[in-house]
Amino acid sequence: MSLEAPQGGAFKPRILVFSTHNISDPGIDLAGSRHMHYPAPVSTIAVPCSSGLKPSWIVHALQAGIDGVFIASDGDECAYLPDCSERTARIASQAQDLLRAKGIEPQRLKMAAVCSVCAESFVKYMNEFSHVLAELGPVGTIAA
C-alpha cells in the first residue's frame, strides 16, 4: 500500500486531529520541526488529555463538514489518568455508536496513541487515514 498523500486535483479529505498538550502535540510539533510532510488539510486542536474529549464534539465535527477525526491519544504515558487508554477508547466507541445512529461511517473516526517523539508514526497515520477517507469520499451532509 502506498503511503503517499493524495496528489493535487484529487479530493483532499479534511481531517481534525485532537492532540494532547504534553504528549501527542509535541510529537506532532516534532514532525514539523523535522520538515516531514503530511496532507495540509490536517488541522489539530490540542486539549490537556484525550480522556476529556466529548463524543458529541466528534459527531459535531463530522456533521460540520470535517471528513475524518483522529484522536492522537495519550496512551499509557498519560500523566493524569492511569486508565487513560481505556477511557479514550470508550469515548471513541461511544462516538462511533452515535455516528452509526446518524448514518455516518464509523471509520471516519480513528484513534491511536502518539507519543511526544512519535513524529514518524503520526505522519504515517495521517497519510494512511487520508487515503482511507479519500476512498470513502466527502462526508455526507446529513441533517441532525
Binding site: I28, A31, S33, H35, T44
Partner: peptide, 25 residues
C-alpha cells in the same frame, strides 16, 4: 496558534494548502 511546527514546516510542499490551513487555525 501554531502555524509553524504544525503548518509551514510540515507543508513546505503545499504553500496553498498551508495558507488555507493557517486561515482555519
Amino acid at each position: 496558534v501554531n502555524i509553524r511546527e504544525q503548518d509551514s514546516w510540515a507543508h513546505g510542499d503545499d504553500p496553498e494548502g498551508a495558507t488555507a490551513k493557517a486561515i482555519g487555525l
